[in-house]
Simulated assay, not measured.
Amino acid sequence: MSTPLLWSLAVLLMAGGIAGTVLPLLPGTALVFAGAWLGAWIDGYERVGVYTVVVLGVMALLAWALDYLAGLMGASRAGASPQALVGAAIGTVAGLLAGFVGVLFMPFVGAALGEYLARRDEQRALHVGLATGVGLLLGMVAKIAIAFAMVGVFIVAWLV
């Protein structure tokens, strides 16, 4: 495979990764990492060294963890019952299958339903559901920021 073709693939992976931070079913930061790793490999790790690739890997893992834990952390901070936490987790998985809107709303619905089943209090269930939604929104913003930071770290390492 030619070098320009490999560089095109690396750029496409990173661009797809940026898009994947907001689109469900695309592993956003994992794609950014794959593109950066490919770019480092193409150049024989001359410009972008192994240390930088490891830092990018840690950033990708952090973003992945935030993606899965943000809603649960929001619910937990609101004092959610164990049933609400299970509902948020189930809602997150179901939301991944339902597309972008599902990713945003299913964890909220799952947490609220779990909290309602646990305590039979509509106000409390709504509060826990909203806290879950805020946690997910903050997690998504953090994931987007990390993805852009990963691209920035790669570019700076490549240029310096």
Rank of each mutant, 00 (worst) to 15 (best):
W64G: 02
V11L: 13
L96S: 06
G91C: 01
V153A: 03
V156F: 11
G35A: 11
L12H: 03
A142N: 12
T132F: 04
L31Y: 12
Y51R: 09
I90G: 06
L61I: 14
M150V: 08
A157Y: 05
H127P: 00
I90N: 06
G152V: 01
F100R: 06
P107T: 08
G133H: 09
L96V: 06
L136T: 10
L5D: 04
G129L: 04
Y45C: 03
V48E: 04
T132W: 04
A157V: 02
A111C: 00
F33S: 01
W64T: 14
A30I: 13
L96E: 09
V101A: 15
Y116F: 15
D121M: 03
Q83F: 13
V11F: 09
G49P: 07
V151G: 08
V50W: 13
E46K: 13
A30E: 06
A65W: 13
M150N: 06
A98S: 14
L136R: 13
V101I: 15
P107N: 08
L23G: 02
T3G: 00
A75Y: 04
A65P: 00
E115F: 03
A88V: 08
D67W: 12
R124I: 01
G57Q: 10
A80I: 10
Y116G: 04
P107H: 05
T29Q: 14
W41N: 05
P4M: 07
L97M: 12
P82G: 09
V22C: 00
W37L: 14
R119V: 10
G91N: 11
L138F: 15
